[in-house]
């Protein structure tokens, strides 16, 4: 087959997965938050309100696209895509099952984390280009936030790499299926990874960039119609990507303990998605319950807690691995 055609098909498939996931996640957010808040969430359209999302997206698509008068026009137009496209590209590296992965380079973990660090720049561009003060504050917070969580995020993703001896996500999953899920040996890393994931996806208690009550809608204050919709979707895509990454690194990916890959067959995808959505559910419950950190507390959490802890943990972990290896080698 023509390799270009294959690539195109793969890209389209990823886009479909991403949009579906975004739709599901938004629907789930409204339902989960609704039930957590003694409400019901959407019920009217379709079975259990499932068609609500269709209405929302169609409406956003056909709404007027406004440009503020004094905005930086080009930057304003491309910013949502800077947010949207990288989070779309990260989907390519997610191993949904042993065969279903769109791109599988050796350094897929690194590639994924590299792509994940682009959206904050888009957020910054969006906030800056809007020429709104609230949006600008949100933009500045996005950049400040990014340098805060990126390093602990990377460091907390390292122990599974050390255990598996590979930067390839698929390899990490496979090596987990032969030993144990890495959440057990690397529990502190897992917890730190979850916290950093919350920061990365800017969800309450770390939603500095949006901060509805402070910054109205943060960087998205001046965006309307589908441009706003794109950024909204990207947020949920990131949410899924972080959950997928956590599942892949720590929770055995698409595998289940005691069941071989062949036995799982096509259900591996379902196992993977179910694991992801359990984590997303956790994120959403936290989002619906907790207060928001103040921006300086946020920095404090990142620089004074997460960073030292993760550095020390990495050293302890590496030393422990070395000692175990030496003991094994000695025996």
């Amino acid at each position: 087959m023509n390799p270009w055609l294959v690539a195109l098909l793969r890209a389209l498939l990823i886009l479909l997965v991403m949009l579906l996931n975004g739709a599901m996640a938004i629907y789930m957010l409204r339902k989960v938050l609704g039930h957590a808040h003694l409400r019901l969430g959407p019920t009217e359209l379709g079975p259990a309100g499932l068609a609500q999302l269709l209405a929302d997206i169609v409406k956003l698509l056909v709404k007027e696209d406004r440009h503020p008068n004094r905005s930086d026009r080009w930057l304003y137009i491309i910013a949502p895509f800077i947010v949207f496209v990288p989070s779309f590209m990260t989907f390519a590296f997610i191993p949904f099952s042993n065969k279903l992965v769109a791109a599988n380079p050796d350094l897929s973990l690194l590639m994924m984390l590299a792509f994940m660090s682009i959206p904050p720049l888009g957020i910054f561009a969006a906030g800056w280009a809007s020429r709104s003060k609230f949006a600008t504050i949100g933009a500045v917070r996005a950049v400040g936030g990014m340098i805060t969580y990126e390093i602990p995020l990377l460091l907390s993703a390292l122990p599974p790499v050390m255990l598996a001896g590979s930067m390839n996500l698929q390899a990490i999953v496979v090596s987990q299926s032969t030993s144990i899920w890495y959440v057990l040996p690397c529990l502190p890393s897992f917890i730190m990874f979850l916290i950093c994931a919350q920061m990365e996806t800017s969800q309450t208690p770390f939603d500095m960039t949006e901060a509805d009550q402070e910054l109205v809608a943060g960087f998205a204050t001046e965006y309307s119609a589908m441009r706003f919709g794109f950024m909204y979707l990207a947020e949920f895509a990131e949410n899924f990507v972080m959950a997928a990454l956590a599942v892949t690194l720590f929770l055995g990916g698409w595998t289940l303990p005691g069941i071989s890959a062949a036995a799982l067959g096509p259900f591996a995808v379902l196992v993977f998605v179910a694991k992801c959505y359990i984590l997303i559910f956790l994120f959403m419950m936290i989002r619906g319950t907790y207060s928001r950190y103040r921006v300086d507390h946020y920095m404090e959490v990142g620089w004074k807690r997460l960073l030292p802890i993760s550095v020390v943990w990495i050293m302890v972990f590496a030393a422990a691995l070395r000692v175990i290896a030496m003991l094994k080698g000695g025996a």
């Binding site: 938050l33 808040h37 309450t204 208690p205 939603d207 009550q213 989002r287 319950t289 207060s291 928001r292």
Partner: peptide, 16 residues
């Protein structure tokens, strides 16, 4: 006043 600090839940519990 809970909502102002970002906590959604308490707002709706109180409304209830």
């Amino acid at each position: 006043s809970g909502l102002d600090s970002g906590a959604m839940g308490i707002f709706l519990f109180c409304l209830y």
